[in-house]
Each structure stands twice: as structure tokens, then as C-alpha cells.
Design a protein around this nucleic acid. Structure first.
Lengths: 234, 234
DNA sequence: CGGTCTCTTGAGCAGAGTCAATGAACGTGG
DNA sequence: CCACGTTCATTGACTCTGCTCAAGAGACCG
């Protein structure tokens, strides 16, 4: 099951997939808000999301939080710890879920000796960096409505890509405070901007489910171009 | 000379360094503001900075620019293009300088077959991603004075690490507009905040040379912690 | 049923942006 | 060596986006 995720995304041969699947791993259940990685900690394993969602975050000394990326099923949680000795940020579970953990030495060995798997994980890492750059552009240079619309577009596209059912609506289980932390805004302002997008006829909401009434309009409001997701190479 | 850079930073053995140095490469002279990589372009080579500075940037549809990272001598310019088919951002020269270009297929081969070199470039990539995360925190959650102080701290530490002479002062050849684009601010505001840091007794300036009168104060104002640079692993 | 977390909304404030004008520095060609 | 044009830095006046503080309403849970 775990190899399915990777194989699906990275065009591995059966043999390579088998080699990846042969890695000893542990499935672990996690609860919303659990810490999966802590900054400054020395990591021992690499994990990826099997079910549910996680996010990476960093804190200022004043305790202000910035969410720097979201992980959905199939995404690695801490590939950065594969070769770095000390974690440079925190990872928390957004929802209850399931993660698969692999011991770092074993994964290092496979990555450095099996070119196909090595390449697949290189690509995953490079795409993650690309998303970070787009988030920097989003937070640094777009106004609040565009930022929010951009997040909604990105999450929808990524979820659709891993086979989750996104038609006109989808569930994004983030609180408005978490959305604010991901966008460099306050929860109060997120609330107001959500209602603005609603009023503009782009989305409507019920609980944490978003109905997108006008995808084109939303994309346009977001200045969204999916090139940075490198969908053809996942 | 080019292998010196990499070897220095990544503890390679003589043999590995020789193998890296054996890669065919081309030295190319670049002028300030030249584009080295363009978004949506299909890359053919990977380059690193030998002399001078470069930066990565992305644009919104409205033409607003966000600089997402800076490269100093020894840094790769487009390692992301090693495995991604289409570039997702632009790279420009900040100053006149010199870059070394390596053909992608040759570099791919070495990276996937020589574990020591592979690991060294993995680490470089992961550190770059870590810097992107810190920049997100910086832009998303810190006020203008802290943001600016943070950039000044980061550049000083990185330059010192590659052996550039930083005592109490150093040259950062960015215009105030470029600084603004790196921090998600306008050049006007950068100007005002620079004078504020000056007034607070943290720095003084002459042209683009910064004299740091109070390193501890600057670090504190910046909420700067160099962990994210993973200096022990460069 | 009470407690907690989240969402909503209003009023007032402030950090950063916009617009505009002036001056300093620098490179170029005559 | 100087005149000129361009780019960059500086400053003021005014605006506005997004923040702070605060309070109330739902929703959910034990």
C-alpha cells in the first residue's frame, strides 16, 4: 500500500517499487495537532502521509506561527531530515491520520544506490522547494483575497491529483486561524476575506467544505498557474 | 577551482572531488541583471556561482516581483533544473560575475551513481529549502525592521562562511528596491526602516556597505537563529 | 448542561503603501 | 574634464490594507 503511493507518483518500475516496498517501515496513527517533528530535534526516521493531512510550521520568538507547507496523502513529511542532522522546523498533524515511518539509514542507502528511487525522491524534494517559492511570492506580493484564493486553488489541484474526489466542492479541514497562519494573515482577516470571496460569487462554504462556484474566476483572482506544481513529474 | 568550492563545502574525498572536477563545464561571464534562467524555459545545464551574486525571483501577473533567494559564490543557481523539466522561476545576476555551467545529463549521471557527490548535492538542495522556509516565516510573520535585520544577518553569516572578509562591515550590492523585493516591502519603506535601524544604533551605511555596530542587537532585532542554515553540513 | 473552540462582526488603529518631488551618484560621450 | 541622462536614495503628505481588541453567537463534546 505504501509503495502504491510512491510508485503512482513517480513512474517507478515494478522492480524499483518492490525495492522501495521492501524497506522496513512502521505505520503509525496520529491525532490532530500531534507533533510529528520538532525543530532542533535530531531525526531518526523519515515518514510520509498515508491518510489525513499534516503541515510544517515555524515560530518566531514571540510565538507567532507561520505554516510553510501542507502535506496530503502521498507526501513526505520530513524528507529534509534524510540528510540534515537537525530539524529546522516543526511538523504537526492537521487531522487524525496515518503515517508510514522509515528508518533514515535504510532510506539513505536506497536513495543513494538505486538511481530510479533516488531520482523519484529528488523530484519530490525539488517540487516541494518550488511550492515554497510560490508561497513566498504569494505572501510577499499578493493581497489577502488573492492569497486565500491561491491556497484554495493549490489544495484543490493537489488533492485532485492524488485521486481525491473534487468536483465543485471539497473539504479543507483547516481552521480560519490555521489558514491565516499559512497566509501570513490573522484569523479575523481570513474570515472577512472568505466572506468577500463569497460575496464576489467565487466560492460558498458550509463548515470547512468549500464549494467553488467559479473555478476560472477563482484562478484569476488567485493569479494561479499550476506550473510550479510540476504535475507532469509527480 | 570549481571543485574547490564544492569540496570545501561538502567534505568530499579527493577521489570524489576529482570525479566532480572531471565533469565538463564551461565558465561564463555574466553582467548585472542578466537572466541566467527564465521561468517556463526547458533547461539544458546546471550552473553554480563562481564569482559575484545572483538571485531567484518570480513575478505576479501584475508584474510585481518577489526575490525568493540569493546565491553567493559556491551556491548552485539552478539545481532545481537537474530533474525538473521546466523552470518554475527566473534567476538573474545581481552583479557582474562568473558562473560554471555543467550539462544536465552528465551531472544527473554523477549524482545518481556517486553516493558521496549525490549526498553533497542532496544536502545543498535541502539547505536551500530550509532557507525558503525561514524566508516564509520572515515575510509572513515579522515586521519590517526584523525582516530587514534578518536579511542582513543571513547574508553576513553566509558570506563569512565561504571565506569572505566580514568583520564589522560588509558589502551587500543590492539596491533598496531589490531589498524590498526580497522582503515583500516597497523600496520607500526599506529606506525608512534602514534609517530606523541606523537610528537605533544597530547599523550604519556608506553606499551599499553595511557597518554593523551591534551584532547582538541586530540578531536580536532580527530574531535570527542560524540553525536553519545548517552550517555544520555545508 | 456547561465548557471550549471556532466563527463572526464592529470600532478604532497602525504599519506599510502610494504618489510625488528633490537630490546625490555615476557612467558616457563629446 | 565637463554636460547630461539615468539610476538610486531620500523625504513628505496622504491613503488603505490588514491588525488589535472586544464581544457575542454557534457548534461540538463530555
Amino acid at each position: 500500500m505504501m509503495s502504491r503511493k510512491l510508485g503512482q507518483h513517480h513512474n517507478l518500475s515494478d522492480e524499483d517499487r518492490a525495492q522501495f516496498a521492501a524497506l522496513p517501515f512502521v505505520l503509525r496513527r496520529v491525532s490532530a495537532s500531534d507533533y510529528l517533528v520538532r525543530e532542533s530535534q535530531v531525526p531518526e526516521k523519515c515518514a510520509f502521509v498515508v491518510q489525513g493531512y499534516t503541515y510544517r510550521q515555524k515560530l518566531t520568538v514571540n510565538g507567532e506561527r507561520q505554516i510553510v507547507s501542507m502535506q496530503i496523502p502521498g507526501d513526505f513529511i520530513d524528507l529534509q531530515n534524510l540528510f540534515l542532522r537537525q530539524s529546522d522546523h516543526n511538523v504537526q498533524a492537521l487531522t487524525n491520520g496515518l503515517v508510514a515511518e522509515i528508518a533514515i539509514p535504510a532510506l539513505q542507502r536506497v536513495v543513494l544506490t538505486n538511481p530510479a528511487i533516488g531520482k523519484a525522491l529528488w523530484i519530490a524534494t525539488l517540487i516541494e522547494a518550488s511550492m515554497l517559492r510560490e508561497w513566498l511570492l504569494n505572501i510577499g506580493r499578493r493581497g489577502a483575497p488573492a492569497r486565500l484564493a491561491h491556497l484554495l486553488c493549490e489544495m484543490a489541484v493537489r488533492m485532485k491529483q492524488v485521486g481525491m474526489p473534487i468536483e465543485d466542492s471539497y473539504e479543507l479541514p483547516m481552521t480560519q486561524e490555521q489558514i491565516g497562519d499559512a497566509l501570513g494573515l490573522t484569523s479575523v482577516h481570513v474570515n472577512r476575506v472568505l466572506r468577500e470571496l463569497d460575496r464576489r460569487g467565487l466560492i460558498s462554504r458550509s463548515k470547512r467544505r468549500f464549494h467553488v462556484s467559479d473555478w476560472d474566476g477563482l484562478r484569476q483572482a488567485a493569479d494561479f498557474n499550476e506550473r510550479y506544481l510540476h504535475l507532469d513529474q509527480c
